[in-house]
Design a binder for these strands. Structure first.
Lengths: 219, 219
DNA sequence: TAGATTGTTAATCGATTAACAATC
DNA sequence: TAGATTGTTAATCGATTAACAATC
């Protein structure tokens, strides 16, 4: 895997999508695929696919295309899915429960080590095969289990304090679902998720469509 | 609001973030802000902020900056948040419940008209002030209530059939949470959300950080 | 070998940043 | 008026697309 120049975020952002499509193709029993075929399925250009992949290495073969299984595993490696990264989930509210339930951690190469909350009503109950633990025990837990990542689904007012505390225990990656953004911190990987942004983008697109429909009618 | 050239998706994608920051500033009682101040908060360039806003009009004032309240409301208008768009939620599973609970529809200018599921155990129960309805009744409901948007949190195998059915009833925007992507359809606004993509991006970032940390240690 | 499709270079296009005159 | 900061043009930078020689 070559890594001369820094790979642009545009490319990185597309990798999970490639991974998903390749996972589906593999499940469908497809053995090989050309950049052209894949580009049609994904509604992007074949050029872009080839350029993106060649940021990391030459995974294809002239005259043949790409082997679905091996390309998928190469992308997994690029994304770090082969690292066995371990995560803790902090916050077992609605969002936490949904994320824990919907995310197939193992099939994505991750391990969910534990779930924490500070609500006595939740502590001790079960969620996706884990007993929800008291947040007070998280320091000891992280010391023992050495997870790298934390998924934060805590109230926005608590978020910063929780993040700082977890960093002091050695956590170095955050998937943050709380409304307030966690800004970049040196040596810490951060990814903020905002579901309502998607709704607003959809609204913009709908407005655009309505506008062009109206413009057509007025012709 | 000028609209000569098509505004790029990069700009559109940033609008919800501006909207969030302005909402917070307004809540904090901040009256005016310059592109420079905002750029520092948001970790972008002041140039980018001014360029982005000027795609839609001159909302600022030389020597003064931007009025937080009025800029926020301009962005709301651009995003269509003043259109009173109405949505139905289809699927009251984990994801549906979380989205319904976490999204302050009204404060974002939307109206949630109804929630549908086909599970008899769920039908008739309450969720965020709505009684979950039988999916069989959705045709009549859409005819009466005329929602524009549907939020899809249905199993991936059902997704395409549901989307097509809803289009036939007049729905013209989809926020799709199912694993399978809903590809672009003419005159229909589509936004796909993939939570596990965020986890994979985080994983990539973590791997990058680990790599550069290791490289430093080896110096 | 002939055909197909990659990897890669070059050309184009678009987005970001810088700079500054306009103006509040 | 002087100072600040916008709106906007120009310069730079980067990303995407096109093209094609390399090669399986």
């Amino acid at each position: 895997m070559k890594m001369e120049k820094k790979v642009s975020v545009s490319v990185i952002n597309r990798l999970p999508r490639y991974y998903r499509y390749l996972t589906d193709l593999l499940a469908a029993g497809v053995e090989r695929i050309s950049s052209k075929e894949l580009s049609e399925k994904m509604q992007v250009t074949a050029s872009q696919i080839r350029q993106d992949l060649n940021c990391f290495g030459g995974f294809g073969q002239q005259g043949y295309g790409y082997n679905v299984k091996s390309l998928r595993s190469e992308i997994a490696k690029i994304l770090g899915l082969d690292q066995g990264y371990t995560a803790v989930l902090v916050g077992a509210g609605n969002m936490g429960r949904t994320f824990a339930t919907n995310t197939k951690f193992e099939s994505r190469g991750f391990r969910l080590a534990g779930i924490f909350d500070s609500d006595p009503k939740k502590i001790g109950t079960e969620l996706v095969g884990h007993t929800i633990r008291d947040y007070k025990e998280i320091a000891a837990f992280i010391r023992d289990e050495k997870p790298e990542m934390a998924i934060l689904t805590v109230p926005k007012d608590a978020m910063h304090a929780v993040a700082e505390e977890l960093i002091s225990y050695g956590i170095r990656a955050f998937l943050n679902f709380s409304y307030t953004e966690l800004s970049d911190i040196e040596n810490i990987a951060v990814e903020n998720v905002h579901l309502s942004d998607s709704l607003m983008r959809l609204s913009y697109k709908l407005l655009e469509h309505d506008r062009s429909r109206k413009a057509k009618e007025e012709e």
